[in-house]
Design a protein around this nucleic acid. Structure first.
Lengths: 256, 256
DNA sequence: GGTGTTCATTTCATTATTTGCAACGGCATT
DNA sequence: AATGCCGTTGCAAATAATGAAATGAACACC
């Protein structure tokens, strides 16, 4: 395991759970020696990615992360282009809408607008959505590169609920259906009682770079809603692509 | 130089300049060997902090950074609490307002609302503001821990314009004045023709954690405006502190 | 007020990773 | 078809990382 991988795994540890963590807890959670953990944290602190409370000695994620994320957003304004579309879709549907971006680890939830209704679906920003268990994941798989799709179909499919898709054949069916329709549906695959409709956001090369989804309590959804949400979410996805890459993905732009 | 420091410096390189960079460029900019650079980048890619275009082989910052920044924001909702206040201040003043957070490297600009006027001050999000050359920096120094203030006063003070404060005595004067008034002013210290008024955002322990500033073209500002902006920006800063830590920084909360 | 406990931090010899050179291979341009 | 430019990989030398144990500091409990 490379040193940088260890250091970054510490960031993940600090990011999940309590806002601040003691050295011993971080070391135990990461499985590294106390001394090793501290030295890695010191390196991260020097770079501004971690901060340490002077008095309590507790560690937390640092503002340098915000800085790097902002620089990324400046180079590729995914949020700036998408957020208005997400908000419009949320207003139109009255349900929770969430936006995700592809990363090696899965689909990262980068923005959420929750439904104003009392009974609503809540999605924490930063959460990683599993490909096989969510509508967003299936929408993404339907329009991603063959290689990524194969990897997921061949990989493990942990069950989050009794309804989670657990084998490649079923998943492939859903993916094929989503490709035909232009949007996907997911029912309780990740969280019980939740139903989602998602569409892929395509990059300049025509492959998916993320997904946008409407999520609602299952009890509130009926057949007509699914059709309606499917059309709306697909249109929103195309709108985002257009904003990012210009109308219908012109050649010229490089970003995938 | 630790390996993680090298890896993170690569992130900085990728973040500045063009949205995507070739291996050779990154290696040259960072001053590492081609092989070393690539191996570090591979480690970062495995963690999702960097992405590589499959076809062009170009590297760019990855969505994992957004994820980490979101997790941080979930733990310490600086932006969620501050942005409405920043927007209100921008609306009230009609000038550009920017918000920054302290980090080891300086004050990181984390949010900006630009003036609607044609002749306005523009601040790129993610930019690091030097402590000695900006109103925000002076406001921060006036209310930070002694140790940090000493470090800055003892450190180098690069001149960005002919007006940049260049010696510890002058800087200390400005800082003392800012502490007495509760807000600071800066005139063309970082960028010519720009004037700013800033106030510190205090943490639960009473020390500064960031700053909020109004920035306008010097030609548009008169004496009365400075007084007015000073009061407004100080109130906005207190408002943010209150939202983050509750009224008048109660004991109990730990975050500095 | 003293003592015991817990946790962070430092030290140092050992170990393992990282490093840079150089060679290789692919790709596009000439 | 040849050439040059990048990205990629192999290997011995160099360097940084590691873990056990000692040290120090803070705290709570007698």
């Amino acid at each position: 395991m490379s040193t940088v991988a260890k250091a970054i795994s510490l960031l993940e540890m600090l990011g999940s759970g309590a806002p601040e963590a003691a050295l011993a807890d971080v070391a135990k959670a990461a499985g590294f020696d106390k001394a090793t953990t501290r030295r890695l944290l010191v390196s991260l602190i020097a770079q501004g990615l971690v901060e340490q409370d002077e008095t309590t000695r507790l560690y937390r994620l640092g503002a340098g992360l915000t800085r790097l994320a902002l620089m990324r957003e400046a180079q590729f304004p995914f949020l700036r282009m998408s957020v208005p579309v997400v908000e419009a879709l949320a207003a139109e549907t009255g349900e929770t809408v969430h936006l995700s971006e592809y990363s090696r680890r899965g689909l990262i939830t980068v923005h959420v607008v929750e439904s104003p209704k009392a009974n609503r679906v809540s999605v924490p920003p930063g959460e990683v959505l599993p490909m096989h268990a969510t509508a967003s994941g299936i929408a993404f798989l339907a329009f991603t590169e063959e290689r990524i799709r194969e990897t997921i179909l061949a990989g493990p499919m942990p069950a989050f609920t009794p309804f989670t898709i657990g084998n490649a054949a079923t998943l492939a069916e859903h993916v094929t259906a989503a490709r035909a329709r232009g949007h996907s549906t997911g029912s309780q695959g990740f969280e019980e009682g939740v139903m989602s409709v998602a569409a892929p956001i395509l990059g300049a090369d025509g492959f998916a770079i993320g997904a946008i989804a409407v999520a609602a309590p299952r009890v509130r959804i009926n057949k007509g809603d699914i059709e309606h949400y499917g059309a709306s979410v697909a249109m929103a996805a195309r709108d985002i692509s257009a904003r990012l890459f210009g109308r219908q993905s012109p050649p010229g732009r490089k970003r995938a």
